[in-house]
Write a protein that binds this DNA or RNA. Structure first.
Lengths: 336, 336
DNA sequence: GTGAAAGCGCTAACAG
DNA sequence: CTGTTAGCGCTTTCAC
């Protein structure tokens, strides 16, 4: 293994000079720098990560804890992860993958052992058991999602309340008066997942403000449950003309079920989804939707973390504004 | 930060004794061990990962390089990843996430800097540019998938050739004589992905052996392409009664398209898929399928790697036998 | 069964 | 602008 002293000898300088060339923490004459860089290249030198972490108390590794539980849409998680890794690399950091199952103990382990410098956690519950730990860890962290009490924490997410509002406003502007929210599976609400609740709140509040007839229906993410719910909706709410879906896997099955029941989409029933753009675009018909900006959330989570690592003060809360894209699944309701 | 010398002082022993208690590399009297462990617990001691890596030249971290390109089914990738992380943890290792985009340079970086002890790479092409690097890296690696030339490499995967054979044998035993393979998108074959080619080979060879009429049809993973292909199949192969699908996203759309064209499944047309069990179970009708054992592949990849790290000699090739589960999408062809 | 001490390879004062 | 040197916290000989 080639080490810093080998490079130093080869370039005719001291080890510290090599170190400073690499870190840029003090100015080096152009010629020495070039000579050192040439030696580094020739010898194929790579600083030893462990030695560097020991000497500098910086590992240049971030922890990313991902959810792998039910009710979470996997492709969205992967897109977050990709954005996090890619952005971390652009800051010369690597990413250590933790599963949600590792819980608080996992976070403590990688933080206390100095394996990572900072942490990103996804799928934050309103009353998440990891919160006290993250506050006391002594290492920067960023939460993707908002807990009930975010004191002393840095959070980022799509503004789900505004997203629900945008969906409903869109339907109301088209003239819909009787609307329903088809939500995530009941277990998601049971464990008090922030984004799911915020959608429900935003929906309810906006419906009230706009004076709409509104109902809220959590739903398992299976085709059968979607069919069952459609049957129920048709029976219970004969005047229903607008549906907001916040449950990726069943968005399309739901449309299918309405069509099987003889309802045209968007002729008789308009559907608006909160889901990734690809899901909305691939659907038949393409769905009007508010996108979940996974890439942007992941990228900005890392940027926030880097700011904190550099000692900057960063905003405690970042709510990304929703963007609604009108597609073929929504239109004015048929005149009675 | 509490360090090993703090623990040593607290327990009234030397640092080396603490180290040996933790590593178990030499025998310690029961009483000292208990005393040391108590001190560790009381002080909340965690060995510094970097210091440990520096002193032992072992980081206890594995690199996992995941594909994020088109034509790959994301949920399957996530299940691999989960299995890898979970298994790695059971061996007291962590997992560093790399994206395929980082390529050879990324692998070299984490290996040469001693950030990781060993590497797992997925989505191996038949002629993968990372192969020479992996051979010369001086660190153990395991490939998920088989390249054309696996000399000096350790590989594991489902036996895709046998999987195709199992599908076709199943159809043949039911009495089908005119069959088709609906394959992955053309780009997957263009970049010579091993598993896709092996399915095609296994299909072709088995069809020949069994004397079946057989055709091979790569297909983009979109609903339109699936519909287009069905139209083509109905026109070109009027006698077709059995289809093997190796393309998760369009398995169900394909069935839908056949049904729209008036073909009953499995009455007129039997469908067998190579896909994860959940996809097969969720489909309507549930699909007879050969499962992709993501969990087992991920777990065993880590086990192989651990064996190599321990200096054991492990099998160079591990081909997991396919398991076909008969479901509602296959039956004997209608009598003419 | 336990301790002392020499590094592991790098960074960051300190010194000039 | 550059060099010298003292650690960073741990593992592992060597010694008893």
């Amino acid at each position: 293994m080639v080490k810093i002293s080998d490079v130093a000898r080869h370039a005719g300088v001291s080890p510290s000079t090599v170190s400073y060339v690499l870190s840029g923490k003090r100015s080096i004459s152009a010629e020495t720098r070039e000579r050192v860089l040439a030696s580094i290249r020739q010898l194929g030198y790579r600083p030893h990560a462990g030695a560097r972490a020991l000497a500098s108390s910086r590992s240049n590794v971030l922890a990313l804890m991902l959810p792998l539980r039910t009710g979470i849409h996997v492709p969205v998680v992967m897109r977050f992860a990709t954005a996090v890794v890619t952005t971390a690399r652009s800051f010369d950091h690597d990413v250590l993958l933790l599963t949600q199952e590792e819980g608080e103990e996992g976070l403590r382990r990688v933080a206390d052992s100095a394996l990572v410098d900072a942490l990103i956690v996804m799928d934050v519950q309103l009353d998440d058991p990891r919160l006290p730990l993250l506050r006391s860890l002594g290492r920067p962290s960023v939460l993707i999602g908002f807990p009930a009490d975010a004191t002393d924490l840095t959070c980022i997410d799509l503004d789900f309340r505004a997203a629900a509002e945008a969906c409903l406003t869109h339907l109301a502007e088209l003239g819909h008066r009787d609307v329903a929210l088809v939500g995530s599976p009941p277990e998601v609400y049971a464990r008090r997942t922030g984004f799911a609740e915020r959608v429900a709140e935003g929906f309810t509040a906006t419906a009230e403000r706009l004076g709409l007839d509104a109902g809220f229906y959590p739903c398992e993410a299976t085709v059968e449950e979607a069919r069952g719910l459609v049957a129920r909706l048709l029976a219970e709410r004969p005047g229903l003309t607008g549906v907001v879906v916040h449950n990726e896997p069943i968005a399309e099955p739901l449309v299918r079920a309405f069509q099987s029941a003889g309802r045209r989409v968007p002729g008789d029933l308009s559907v608006v989804a909160i889901c990734p753009d690809e899901v909305a675009e691939q659907a038949e018909p393409p769905l009007t939707s508010v996108a979940i900006p996974a890439e942007e959330v992941g990228r900005r989570a890392v940027e926030l973390l880097m700011g904190k690592l550099d000692g900057e003060s960063v905003p405690a809360a970042t709510l990304l504004p929703p963007a609604l894209t009108a597609r073929a699944s929504s239109a004015a309701p048929a005149a009675d």
